[in-house]
């Protein structure tokens, strides 16, 4: 029994151990790596994936998935570039969030009302979203004005703007998930939708909201990303949905619902970015970046699946209480 508990403890802390190993390895290879400026860079680079992943976490917690987030990023960025080119960020960000949330509501309509699998709905809306974005941009590259690009270098209280946005989104999401009735109901619905309905939770409303949240986060992520990239080509935010899922899963969010949280997702996004950053700093062959990243995600999922298997074995119903040796 004790060895089982020990193994569980080891497996539970494996992602953190992984992070420490990553820090140690890159730290010993380069003295530029363990540097405050470098960590600021990591956080800035990780911010849009983290924000995307935070939205994804809401959906994953209900055992759903949202593959359309990359498309929503592109669509909201395209709308910003074409119709709100002169708007101030104060107006632009809420507008992009609204676009994303609206998009999420469409996803929710199909998932909740028509009961189509979330995977296929959001796969389809991924196409539709990218199509709309290409229509808006007339398949041309979109460039942005200085008031947006200057944000890439802007700081507030000495902290870069992107990190502020990242931190605010994280804080709000964390509070919502942990300290509001809605957040706790998200967890309940993900754990057992039937029991949740029986307990009187408005399950369709909870599900609809999480897709809207995911869309809104994609809108913000689009904004943060565009301040860094400066221009949106037709491949903008391509396959970011997978990066977001990967960050969540790496941070311990279960694809089957009810387990994990936004802190894990942020951890996952930062870990991925740390590795990428480290590889750049030690001048690794850029072609091996995806290999290293995917291996790390694989290891994290492997560890998590082994842990669930042990927990499942422990949770099996017992019929008789065995006499313990006296």
């Amino acid at each position: 029994m004790n060895t089982v508990r020990l193994r569980l403890a080891l497996l539970r802390n494996a992602p953190v151990a992984l992070f420490v190993v990553v820090l140690a390895v890159f730290g010993s290879l380069s003295d530029r790596f363990l540097d405050v400026q470098n960590f600021t860079n990591i956080l800035i680079q990780a911010s849009h994936i983290a924000i995307l992943g935070i939205g994804m976490t809401f959906v994953l917690l209900t055992a759903g998935i949202d593959l359309s987030v990359g498309a929503v990023m592109y669509l909201s960025v395209a709308l910003l570039g074409i119709y709100l080119a002169d708007a101030s960020p104060i107006l632009a960000v809420p507008a992009m969030m609204a676009v994303g949330a609206l998009f999420g509501l469409v996803n929710a309509f199909f998932v909740v009302r028509l009961r189509v699998a979330a995977f296929i709905v959001t796969l389809a809306t991924l196409f539709i979203g990218r199509g709309l974005a290409l229509w808006v941009t007339e398949t041309r590259m979109v460039f942005y004005k200085d008031q947006i690009l200057s944000l890439a270098r802007a700081e507030f209280l000495g902290v870069p703007w992107a990190i502020w946005v990242f931190a605010i989104v994280f804080a709000v999401a964390w509070i919502v998930l942990n300290h509001t009735p809605f957040g706790r109901q998200v967890y309940a619905v993900g754990e057992n939708p039937d029991a949740a309905a029986k307990a009187g939770i408005n399950v369709p409303l909870v599900l609809t909201t999480v897709y809207a949240v995911s869309g809104a986060c994609a809108g913000i992520a689009g904004f943060v990303s565009i301040t860094q990239v400066g221009a949106a080509a037709s491949s903008f935010a391509m396959e970011k949905e997978f990066a977001a899922v990967a960050a969540s899963v790496l941070g311990g969010v279960s694809l089957f619902g009810g387990r994990g949280g936004v802190a894990g997702t942020v951890f996952g996004a930062v870990l991925i970015q740390t590795v990428q950053n480290g590889l750049v700093i030690v001048n690794a062959d850029p072609y091996i970046y995806p290999l290293v990243t995917s291996s790390i995600i694989f290891v994290a999922v492997f560890v998590d699946s082994q842990r669930s298997r042990i927990l499942e074995r422990l949770g099996r119903r017992r019929i008789r209480i065995e006499e313990r040796p006296v």
Partner: peptide
């Protein structure tokens, strides 16, 4: 244009799923 190809393809997949 590419956009309608994308959007219509997506709509078709969605329709099939519905």
């Amino acid at each position: 244009s590419l956009f309608s190809v994308f959007a219509i393809k997506g709509a078709v997949i969605l329709l099939a799923a519905v």
